[in-house]
Simulated assay, not measured.
Amino acid sequence: MTTAVASETRTGRSLVTDTEFDTLAAFCADEYGLERCVAERVVDQALALVFVMGSTGEGAAMAPSELVDPGWHTLILHTSWYADWCERNFGYFLHHQPNSKVRTRGLMVDVVDKIKSAGFEVDERLWGTAAECNAPACCGDGPCC
């Protein structure tokens, strides 16, 4: 008889130290006017996204959701830290290359699938892929939804 073992997912937060995460989340909350608990979710998802983009080389085919984008901007605005983090994780600097892609539900589902396939937890409400999502205010579910 074969027993299935559930694989554990990881978080974007697990990719950095607690001190680094606290610094990034505090900046994101302050810079973008988010509640701290929401900023923590946003930075967590941005770290997972950027890690998948950099480690797979598929960054050009991926984009953050509108709600996750401030998290990526938070990372790149800490330029020295971000450059070092990229070098340690990918061996190269992952540039932010804004494009004119429309953030469609299909694109977000594809990005979410790639992040999940890499073993990360996904907060679907931040990606606009949760069935009950009522954007723009944190899916409309109240503070820290």
Rank of each mutant, 00 (worst) to 15 (best):
M1L: 12
M1I: 07
T3F: 10
S7M: 09
E8K: 15
T9R: 14
R10V: 07
T11Y: 07
G12F: 00
G12T: 01
G12D: 04
S14Y: 09
S14T: 03
V16I: 06
T17I: 03
T23F: 04
T23R: 13
T23C: 03
A25Y: 06
F27D: 09
F27C: 04
D30G: 12
E35M: 07
C37T: 01
E40T: 09
V42L: 12
V43S: 00
V50G: 02
F51Y: 09
S55L: 05
S55A: 03
T56I: 05
E58Q: 11
A60G: 10
A61M: 07
A63V: 06
P64N: 03
L67H: 10
D69I: 09
G71M: 04
G71L: 03
G71C: 01
T74L: 11
T74N: 00
I76Y: 12
I76F: 14
I76H: 08
L77S: 11
L77R: 12
H78Q: 01
Y82D: 10
A83M: 11
D84F: 08
D84P: 11
D84G: 08
E87I: 10
N89S: 15
F90I: 05
G91T: 10
L94A: 05
H95D: 04
N99Y: 14
S100L: 15
R103Q: 14
T104D: 12
R105F: 12
G106A: 14
L107T: 10
M108C: 07
D110G: 06
V111I: 08
V112P: 02
S117K: 13
S117D: 09
A118Y: 02
F120Y: 10
F120V: 05
V122R: 00
V122T: 01
T129R: 01
A131Y: 12
E132N: 08
E132I: 05
N134K: 04
A135G: 15
A135N: 11
A137V: 04
C138R: 14
C138Q: 15
D141I: 15
D141P: 10
G142C: 06
C144A: 03
C145F: 08
